[in-house]
Design a protein around this nucleic acid. Structure first.
Length: 491
RNA sequence: CGGGAAGUGGCGCAGUCCGGUAGCGCAUCCGGUUUGGGACCGGAGGGUCGCAGGUUCGAAUCCUGUCUUCCCGACCA
């Protein structure tokens, strides 16, 4: 792992501002804590969207859309839920402006006060369950498996580009089931879907687990999550899937008649991933030269840069380049031939490195003579010469090789920075020193978790599903514990 | 809301202590030479110095107020 990165990553704000913004992903907007996602960044988001959407549909989900505004009374129907979100809601109180009688501009028209305030959705459980009530009468309507692609607003006290913006894009799935077992199965299915997507598609290794009560979603009985490790050793929650029990069904009175004619409340799940995944992407793979994109996510997988003097030479090179481009595209590889005369090759090399393009091909006069191209890999920053005739098969192979390499590199980093710890002193030393994931025993109480958090800022990221049972003593209280949980400082 | 820092052309900054013609780098535009790792030379455009008030012959600079942003805490996908 690049040493420079680790040191630099300690100041992520700087890193984002200098690296990511230059890399054309996003910039801060005029609105506090919001961001403008630039075209190149959005193209990556579209890749994420496309793949997830495909997977949702393969597992029987349908897309729908629900309103942006939620009546205040709706939000308060589920007690835990409203308590969890109340502190970060944007509220619409008026519906009209008027000219400022004292001068320029406009002011809020106090006569246009809403009878009931509207909340800009921080998540859509309430408005969706209010709708589901009308969609569900019989067991024949179940399961109902809906997904929504939308934006939500959470007025966080502190924001950070991609990781915690006031407004963010996400997908939120909401499902209703006839039985508890089926709902739990759904929540777990989505967890696996997310984990597989993160690992196979984004090359981000994740730990599957469940949240402790403290970290659970407001209104959920169980929160499943995938946790990833960033290059500075901090944890990032990359996705969550919640088993909501009958909480929302009861709050919104959503019942169905089972086969025997009896009325029952439905069982629910909700789950989501957001543009935070883009932050995870950057902080998992990028280095000091800029973004490093896994081929699956790269809007441009291969860039071809010509090196030439004069029109004639460019024409000769373009012939080879365009042929290569067409051949690669025929194999499903996305290719950009950058023959702009306005930038020099060296400039372009840096530019595409910054943008994380996995493979770069350079063709110059020397290559024309020898029938070769220069092939550079973004992940290893290595260069080699390849015979023109071998380029297509070579690149095809590299697409999976780079994808795998990035995953393995990230996995090795995570493993190197995950330790088991059995004493409080070791725990503190580790958390305050090297950081990373610390696997330790915990007595299972929220009180202990709080005390550990107060002492070290580390939280329980998850209770891993993969972990095996093991007798031990709580790192903090010494009380008996049946299994290890994963602690880390988190974003 | 507590603790710290900063607001000066599009971006990054200097100038502020000690008041006196608003500067530098990058980017942009024009002309020319260049092109195998962010080219060079010459020329040009662009800023009421966050905002409001005060002191002064004169304020980016001093004083008061205010707003915003960033970092560290509480909150969090």
């Amino acid at each position: 792992m690049a040493k420079g990165l680790t040191s630099r990553a300690q100041d992520y704000a700087k890193w984002y501002n200098e690296l990511v913004i230059k890399a054309d992903l996003a910039e801060n907007s005029a609105v506090r804590g919001s961001m403008v996602i630039k075209p190149y960044g959005y193209a990556i988001w579209e890749k994420i969207q496309g793949e997830l959407d495909k997977r949702f549909k393969e597992t029987g989900h349908e897309n729908a859309y629900f309103p942006l505004f939620i009546p205040k009374s709706h939000l308060s129907r589920e007690a835990d839920h409203v308590e969890g979100f109340a502190k970060e809601c944007a509220v619409v109180t008026h519906y009209r402006l008027k000219n400022d009688p004292n001068g320029k501009g406009v002011i809020v028209d106090e006569d246009a006060k809403l009878e009931e305030e509207l909340i800009v959705r921080p998540t859509s459980e309430t408005i969706i369950w209010d709708t589901f009530k009308n969609w569900i009468q019989s067991y024949r309507n179940l399961p109902l498996k809906i997904n929504q692609w939308a934006n939500v607003v959470r007025w966080e006290m502190r924001t950070r580009l991609f990781l915690r913006t006031a407004e963010f894009l996400w997908q939120e799935g909401h499902t209703a089931h006839a039985t508890k077992e089926e709902a739990i199965e759904e929540a777990e299915l989505i967890l696996d879907l997310y984990a597989d997507f993160a690992e196979k598609f984004m090359a981000i290794p994740v730990i599957r687990g469940v949240k402790s009560a403290n970290e659970r979603f407001a209104g959920a009985l169980e929160t499943y999550c995938i946790e990833a490790m960033m290059q500075d050793g901090k944890a990032l929650q990359a996705g969550t899937s919640h088993f909501l029990g009958q909480n929302f069904a009861k709050a919104f009175d959503v019942t169905f008649q089972d086969k025997s004619g009896k009325l029952e409340h439905v069982w629910a799940t909700s789950w989501g991933v957001s543009t935070r995944l883009m932050g995870a992407l950057v902080m998992t793979h990028s280095d000091d030269n800029g973004l490093v994109l896994p081929p699956n996510l790269a809007p441009i997988q291969v860039v071809i840069v010509p090196i030439y003097k004069g029109e004639e030479q460019l024409a000769e090179i373009s012939e080879v380049a365009n042929k290569l481009k067409a051949d690669l595209q025929a194999k499903g590889v996305s290719v950009k031939y950058d023959d702009r005369d306005t930038y020099k090759p060296g400039w372009k090399f840096n530019e595409y490195e910054l943008k994380g393009v996995p493979v770069r091909l350079a063709i110059g006069p020397k290559d024309l003579e020898k029938g070769t191209v220069e092939l550079a890999r973004r992940d290893t920053l290595t260069k080699e010469y390849v015979a023109v005739g071998d380029v297509v098969s070579k690149v095809e192979g590299l697409m999976t090789e780079i994808q795998d390499n990035l995953y393995n590199k990230a996995l090795a980093f995570r493993d190197e920075n995950t330790v088991e710890v059995d004493t409080w002193d070791d725990f503190v030393a580790r958390i305050e020193g090297e950081g990373g994931f610390v696997s330790a025993h915990w007595d299972g109480t929220p009180e202990t978790e709080d005390k550990i958090k107060d002492a070290t800022k580390a939280t329980i990221r998850c209770i891993p599903l993969e972990g095996e049972e093991e007798e031990g003593k709580c790192i903090f209280s010494g009380a008996p514990s049946k299994r290890r949980v994963l602690f880390a400082k988190a974003y």
